[in-house]
């Protein structure tokens, strides 16, 4: 029997969150419907956990906050002060697509030369407890077309999968960080053996995940094909309805473009970084006024090509995990899945 695969009852989940509290800042999905969000859990609200649906905002912001102070500069002396770093953090109920997204962010922030130390410190301290999708949350989910799947384990420290009868979760502790969680849950008496036995296949009680609602075919040669279509007239068509609102990248678990700026607070200049979006008109505009991507056609093309070709060229991964959020939330109905399919036909 695999000693790193255990069973935990769903009714025990508030206790499971509580068992993490002494060692971690704990976040988990809580709130109703539209309000569902990764929420800081404390002894009082652990029962508010909600496991159906996926929060509109991915847990990306625990690693890469919407806005963060990088350092402060004393304007008189030029002395630099650094913000405190948060300690160990566990996030419970992350969907496989979002964990896959974090694996993509790791490439961007940690690889190819420079290490982004603010990200690296938070990443080091972050444990991802992933919950496989027993029901597919959105009409627009297509993670199983993008190299992941509703029970994908990429990026997961712990992977939780529902049992056939839905009463319990099979917990696979996949990494050292995951086994630290196992130790706490075991000490709290929350884990039992799965009863699975290598000799009797049928005894693995985890339910096979359902397929995604949106099935597309992603061509193996997509990156090269779509990059070669730089001058294709379709970019103008795709971008016609775009409002440049930035919702698509705001909700995306893999978008990571940021802005750096400085704000004067009393005698200290706070140097901060915040999310940015390549769909905004001033994104690449230079101080002299020249803009290499002057219209939404160039901006949308750059957004899609970054996700589907350039990132792949640099890191060997597609920068879209098929979470479907941008398709569901775009006010103009733009659809990256359709672009992926189109790219494959080129």
């Amino acid at each position: 029997m695999d000693k790193n695969t255990k069973l935990i009852q769903k009714t025990a989940l508030p206790d499971a969150l509580a068992a993490l509290l002494p060692d971690y800042r704990v976040f988990a999905p809580a709130g109703e419907n539209e309000r569902l969000a990764f929420t800081r859990i404390d002894a009082q609200n652990a029962f508010a956990l909600c496991l159906s649906g996926t929060p509109l905002m991915p847990p990306k912001e625990l690693l890469f906050p919407r806005s963060e102070t990088l350092y402060g500069t004393d304007i008189k002396t030029g002395d630099v002060s650094l913000p405190q770093t948060a300690g160990p953090t566990a996030v419970f109920g992350v969907r496989p697509c979002d964990a896959h997204g974090i694996a993509n962010l790791d490439c961007a922030f940690l690889e190819k030369g420079y290490v982004d130390s603010a990200y690296a410190a938070r990443r080091e301290a972050l444990t991802l407890i992933v919950l496989a999708c027993a029901q597919i949350p959105y009409e627009t989910c297509f993670c199983d077309s993008m190299g992941g799947g509703p029970a994908g384990s990429e990026g997961a420290d712990v992977l939780l999968t529902e049992t056939e009868d839905g009463s319990a979760l099979v917990a696979a502790f996949l990494t050292g960080k995951g086994r630290a969680v196992k130790a706490l849950w075991a000490a709290a008496g929350l884990l039992s053996d799965t009863g699975a036995d290598a000799t009797t296949k049928s005894a693995n009680p985890a339910k096979a995940p359902p397929p995604c609602n949106l099935r597309i075919s992603k061509d193996k040669g997509l990156a090269a094909k779509i990059a070669a279509a730089f001058d294709d007239p379709m970019w103008a068509r795709f971008s016609e309805a775009c409002l440049g609102c930035g919702t698509c990248s705001f909700v995306c678990p893999t978008c990571y473009c940021f802005d750096l700026d400085s704000e004067n607070r009393g005698g200290t200049a706070e140097e901060f970084r915040c999310w940015d979006c390549c769909m905004f008109s001033d994104y690449s505009r230079m101080a002299g006024g020249h803009n290499p991507r002057p219209t939404k056609k160039e901006r949308l093309r750059n957004r899609y090509l970054h996700k589907l070709a350039y990132f792949d060229e640099r890191y060997g991964r597609t920068l879209c995990v098929g979470c479907g959020r941008c398709i569901g939330k775009c006010p103009a109905g733009l659809d990256i899945a359709a672009v992926i399919e189109w790219g494959g036909t080129l």
Partner: peptide, 19 residues
């Protein structure tokens, strides 16, 4: 080449031309 830059370290996404 001149391109708008923010981070200088290949992270912020600002200055790309293709990949």
């Amino acid at each position: 080449l001149e391109m708008r830059m923010k981070c200088g370290i290949g992270k912020c996404g600002r200055c790309n031309i293709g990949s």
